[in-house]
């Protein structure tokens, strides 16, 4: 346990020091949000339940969480692995699960400031008005449900190398973002794309928050799909780790 804590602290310190990485990761979704804000009127109501401005903020939170998790897990991890440092760590007595868990936790930590900043923009420029309790509950919900993104990020970091990480992460970001209905409401998409959206974690991540904000009960199916993604990706990650261990790679 003390090994896990030492490694976690080491990782967090390293993360906080890489301010360029943090600035880009946190700044990107915020800038994206601002661009969308400038483009659209805010009077529209989506699917008869939530105003466009709320829909947009939630979508950008989801997008921000995705970007943060993919950058922290995917690109950063792939680069780190290419240096051989991960291999060096693997010969220490630190258990495999501690390594993977720390990486997922570190990604989750990066997600949090992204959510806070996007919400701040929502509050100041986005014309989103919520009670203080609602803000906190929304943040907590968006954060907890970002776990499948964090696991996905680390999984991607394990699957790609330093060169392929960038295109893969970018592709995932836009495929999951666009088809998950983060840039355009799913209900305004063609029928085929609508059914595609319903299997993507981004769609369900945003939908849970929207359900919460419009006072509906949170859909069990949304939770189930997010938990499913976390479990499947988590198992895939474990498998990948085992295969590498057997081959003596990292």
């Amino acid at each position: 346990m003390s090994a896990l804590l030492s490694f976690a602290r080491f990782e967090v310190v390293r993360l906080l020091r890489s301010w360029k990485f943090l600035a880009i990761t946190v700044g990107f979704p915020v800038v994206f949000y601002m661009l969308f804000l400038g483009e659209r009127g805010s009077g529209q109501v989506i699917d008869g339940t939530v105003p466009w401005r709320v829909y947009l903020m939630v979508s950008m939170c989801t997008f921000g969480a995705l970007v943060a998790a993919l950058n922290a897990g995917g690109s950063r991890l792939a680069t780190e692995r290419s240096t051989g440092w991960a291999r060096q760590l693997r010969i220490t007595p630190m258990p495999a699960w501690a390594y993977v868990m720390t990486k997922v936790t570190a990604s989750m930590l990066v997600v949090l400031p992204v959510l806070a900043l996007v919400e701040l923009v929502g509050l100041t420029f986005g014309d989103v008005r919520l009670g203080i309790g609602q803000w906190f509950a929304l943040t907590a919900l968006l954060w907890v449900t970002a776990l499948p993104f964090a696991v996905l990020g680390v999984f991607v970091g394990f699957m790609v190398n330093a060169e392929t990480a960038y295109p893969v992460v970018t592709a995932l970001m836009f495929v999951l973002g666009y088809f998950g209905g983060l840039f355009n409401p799913v209900s305004q998409m063609p029928q085929a794309l609508q059914s595609a959206a319903k299997v993507l974690p981004t769609f369900h991540h945003a939908l849970l928050a929207l359900e919460f904000l419009s006072g509906q009960t949170l859909g069990g199916i949304n939770w189930l799909i997010l938990v499913g993604y976390t479990a499947v990706l988590g198992l895939a990650l474990l498998w990948k780790y085992r295969v590498e261990e057997a081959r003596g790679l990292a």
Binding site: F10, V13, R14, R17, S18, T79, E80, S82, T83, G84, W85, R87, Q88, I91
Partner: peptide
């Protein structure tokens, strides 16, 4: 174990 690879084998930024 000590290995020579393409990378430094050391964590960046510390």
């Amino acid at each position: 174990m000590l290995q020579t690879g393409t990378g430094s084998g050391l964590p960046p930024g510390v």
